[in-house]
């Protein structure tokens, strides 16, 4: 059973997750079907900057985050940004969207100049997230858990971060049991996606270098 405090925690995180989104004027531009290669590149980089800002605003609303040491806050955000953004993008691709939208977004990424060897694992990850059919509470909690990973580089007080992450893992575990009673391994599958994210993170630096050269 989820306790009253856990419900409050979930509500705060879900509200923050829903409140902070990419602005509509940018999403409208993303859905335009006519664009040059340069326009596409500039827009995708604008989206990336926006995604980081959205991520920071979400994170500021995670209970306890702003009470962490300031430099540890920076280290957590820096260390998790790439993973959190891939997870957020995958969640966007999992949503029910009007016909054709997914195809337009996919096409932009395929035409971006990013090499196929990086696009394939990225879209495989999006597919694996889609297949999980997470509810919004699970999505928001998983994002928060990704950000509050204690072993990121340069984090000084790992225990303080663990103290924030553990209650979220606990409520996510309970939620998985309640939402997916026929799938006792569901929570483990979710955590498995975090491992997949680490692999994407590892490729990301290489992907950017290759993209820039293209």
């Amino acid at each position: 059973e989820i306790t009253k405090e856990q419900r409050t925690l979930m509500r705060l995180i879900v509200d923050a997750h829903n409140r902070h989104q990419i602005p509509q004027d940018i999403t409208k531009k993303l859905l335009q079907e006519q664009y040059s290669a340069e326009e596409n590149f500039l827009l995708l980089t604008e989206v990336a900057t926006n995604q980081v800002q959205v991520l920071v605003e979400f994170t500021k609303n995670i209970p306890g985050f702003l009470s962490l040491d300031h430099e540890d806050q920076i280290a957590l955000l820096k260390g998790s940004a790439v993973e959190a953004m891939f997870l957020r993008s995958a969640q966007v691709f999992s949503r029910k969207m009007p016909n054709g939208y997914i195809e337009v977004l996919e096409e932009r990424i395929r035409k971006s100049g990013i090499s196929e060897e990086f696009i394939t694992p990225m879209f495989n990850f999006y597919k694996s997230i889609n297949e999980l059919h997470m509810v919004e509470e699970e999505q928001a909690l998983l994002t928060a858990i990704t950000i509050l990973t204690p072993d990121r580089p340069y984090v000084k007080d790992q225990q303080a971060v663990e103290r924030l992450q553990e209650p979220m893992l606990d409520v996510l575990r309970k939620l998985c049991i309640l939402q997916h009673p026929q799938e006792p391994q569901y929570f483990a599958r979710l955590l498995g996606r975090l491992t997949e994210l680490r692999t994407l993170n590892h490729y990301h630096a290489e992907m950017l270098t290759s993209w820039r050269m293209n």
Binding site: H20, Q53, V56, K60, Q73, L77, K78, A205, L208
Partner: peptide, 21 residues
């Protein structure tokens, strides 16, 4: 390294300031 500095700068600015929805 250039990416990392750029990312950190965006994070620091966003942490200090307010980002309008």
């Amino acid at each position: 390294p250039g990416n990392s500095i750029g990312l950190e700068a965006i994070i620091r600015k966003a942490l200090m300031g307010k980002y309008d929805d």
